[in-house]
């Protein structure tokens, strides 16, 4: 059993406070959905938990099984069992998937024996074409292929807790079903059930990936938490039921640190 605990987390980007006190607990086998309008701080939450450069933690704590995650560099957070499925996976020219996963397994003290066979069987199970295994990371892959690639890595690395940052964006219905089913299966694994924090705009992700808890994030705070039925309310009524209309109308506050030519701005959507 593993538990990710986020307590009173406040964080800023470029001096602007985006997360204004987040409390959240995710344990093995649980699926939590975080939903919220644009600019609510959803992607900032995933970036801060994983340690993406450019985000400043103002207060609060994040622990994984009692270990202070915020004190660790990104690679150690991953090795400790946290995993981030990115909204817009970065293209890394010339760097091969099997090399990266080989290094990632080595960091964790795990053997790379059978990695090739594992890659092939996992790829087949989510409809990721084998020929893409020999491509440099994410280079020349479509949106759906990139998300299949992300899901493939998740399945091979077998983390304790996975943060899915808009897994459902940029992929077609087939890819969405393949990816969300695979995550659902991991969360139901009898030996080591995956804990999932799924950030999403839409409830369509949650048809195959069955969530236990839904949290509504607005302007850097969780305003409501509940069961899966919350997602249905959102689907019919929108966010208006959870937040005053005038607040929704305000311009998006969330801004990632942007470097010219990078995809960081998209990451922050």
């Amino acid at each position: 059993m593993s538990t990710l605990e986020i307590r009173g987390l406040r964080a800023a980007v470029n001096g602007t406070e985006i997360l204004r006190g987040i409390d959240l607990t995710v344990s093995s086998g649980e699926v939590h959905a975080i939903m919220g309008p644009n600019g609510a701080g959803k992607s900032t939450l995933s970036a801060v938990v994983m340690g993406k450069p450019g985000y400043e933690v103002l207060a609060g704590s994040v622990t994984l099984d009692g270990v202070d995650v915020l004190a660790l560099p990104t690679w150690e957070r991953a090795a400790a069992g946290l995993h981030l499925v990115m909204q817009y996976p970065t293209e890394v020219p010339g760097v091969m998937l099997d090399d990266v996963l080989g290094e990632a397994l080595t960091t964790r003290g795990r053997s790379t024996d059978g990695l090739d066979a594992l890659l092939r069987s996992e790829a087949a199970s989510i409809g990721f074409e084998e020929r893409f295994l020999d491509r440099p990371l994410n280079v020349d892959l479509s949106g759906g292929e990139k998300k299949r690639n992300e899901t493939l890595q998740l399945a091979v690395l077998q983390p304790k807790i996975a943060i899915l940052d808009e897994l459902d964006s940029g992929l077609d219905i087939d890819a969405l079903r393949d990816c969300s089913r695979r995550v659902e299966a991991m969360s139901n694994d009898p030996d080591s059930p995956l804990g999932v924090l799924a950030i999403t705009h839409y409830s369509r992700l949650l048809t195959e990936l069955r969530c236990d808890h839904v949290h509504i994030l607005v302007k850097g705070r969780i305003v409501t938490s509940g069961g899966p039925e919350l997602a249905d309310v959102l689907e019919t009524d929108g966010y208006a039921a959870f937040v005053p209309a005038e607040e929704l109308a305000e311009p998006a506050a969330e801004k990632a640190p942007v470097r010219p030519g990078s995809l960081d701005d998209l990451f922050a959507m």
Binding site: M50, K52, P53, P73, T74, W75, A78, A79, H83, L84, M86, P89, T90, E91, V92, P93, G94, V95, D99, V100, L101, E103, A104, T107, R108, P136, L137, Q153, L157, R259, S262, L263, D264
Partner: peptide, 29 residues
């Protein structure tokens, strides 16, 4: 590239190994 390095590190690749992979990959083209 900071994004490329973060991507590899977020998989659990050590920073110096991540940088090494990115540099060698850079030349691959």
């Amino acid at each position: 590239d900071e994004d490329q390095r973060f991507y590899l590190e977020s998989r659990g690749v050590r920073p110096e190994v991540a940088e090494r992979l990115v540099v060698l990959g850079f030349f691959d083209e």
